[in-house]
């Protein structure tokens, strides 16, 4: 009995472990080694820390990272503020019958790829785009305005891309909130804000934190949206990594940046978990 159990465990776990090891762990080990290597001027390859030190010595690198992280945090918070009422509305206000309908509406944009979505935005917002066309037609504008290539446009695009990943954990956590708790608080003299901050948000913290982690990581790791919608001002850290690998042929530097991104974003999330008093194991559930 015991052996057969062990065998079945082994049987089911092996593909997962193999997948993890071959496709995730091995390449990362390779990258990690690469990040500590450097080609010298005379063509030799040596062990060095300089790829990592470069990040701290060269302001452009760490400033780009700080910028990316700060914008990712802004995007995460904005996404939260926008989707929270939406999730609340879907779970608590709309009847059960319409919940599926609303979820479908939210999911719909994600049936197409991110690239197509971003190009859709670009068609809408560009100087010769749809919105400008109508504004001009109705006489609201005299000259077309370039709405693309601003930070705000980029943030909007990132928020749009992230919404789904925030709304799903929020809906699942709010669904588990007993309506009676809200009513009880109301009955005990609480107003709307008290209910929100004392009952709903404390209850929703695990969902909020897990949504925030996902959105933060996805935004930090996004490449397309900042690049296409942010335009000329939007050096995102992922683009920096791409540039090191592709344009500069400096895989060692790119690998080091990749690991710095991993470590620094983990640090940001760790700080976020500390601040919200949550444990990763609770949040991941």
């Amino acid at each position: 009995m015991k052996t057969s159990l062990r065998w079945s465990l082994f049987f089911f776990l092996t593909p997962v472990l193999l997948w993890l090891f071959l496709l995730i762990v091995l390449p990362h080990i390779d990258l990690l080694i690469m990040s500590f290597r450097m080609d010298t001027d005379d063509g030799k390859t040596i062990w060095t820390l300089s790829n990592y030190l470069n990040f701290f010595h060269e302001p452009i690198y760490w400033l780009t990272f700080v910028r990316t992280a700060v914008y990712s945090i802004i995007v995460t918070l904005l996404t939260l503020v926008i989707t929270f009422p939406l999730a609340f509305y879907i779970t608590k206000v709309v009847g059960l019958r319409f919940q599926g309908f609303f979820m479908t509406i939210i999911l719909m944009p994600f049936w197409v790829s991110e690239l197509v979505r971003v190009y859709g935005w670009m068609i809408l917002l560009r100087e010769s785009g749809v919105i400008n066309h109508f504004l001009l037609k109705f006489g609201l504008l005299r000259h077309p305005v370039e709405m693309l290539y601003h930070d705000s446009t980029m943030i909007m695009g990132l928020v749009y891309t992230s919404m789904l990943f925030m709304v799903v954990p929020l809906i699942s956590v709010l669904e588990s909130l007993d309506d009676g708790l809200i009513e009880a608080a109301y009955d005990l003299g609480a107003n709307m804000w008290h209910i929100l901050f004392k009952i709903i948000i404390p209850h929703a913290v695990p969902g909020i934190v897990s949504g925030c982690i996902v959105v933060f990581m996805l935004t930090l790791g996004n490449y397309l949206t900042p690049n296409l919608m942010g335009g000329k001002n939007s050096l995102w850290f992922t683009e920096q990594i791409y540039n090191e690998f592709i344009a500069s042929f400096n895989w060692n530097q790119g690998a080091a940046f990749g690991f710095l991104l991993l470590v620094l974003s983990s640090l940001v999330i760790w700080a976020g978990l500390k601040m919200s008093g949550q444990k990763l194991s609770q949040v991941v559930q």
Binding site: D39, D41, E58, I60, L63, T64, R67, K232, N233, S234, L235, E239, Q240, N243, E244, A247, S248, F249, N250, Q253
Partner: peptide
Amino acid sequence: ARLEAIEGKILDKVKAAR
């Protein structure tokens, strides 16, 4: 070889500049 790294850094600087 190695010219690309020089160029890459300059291009990054241009892109990141305000």
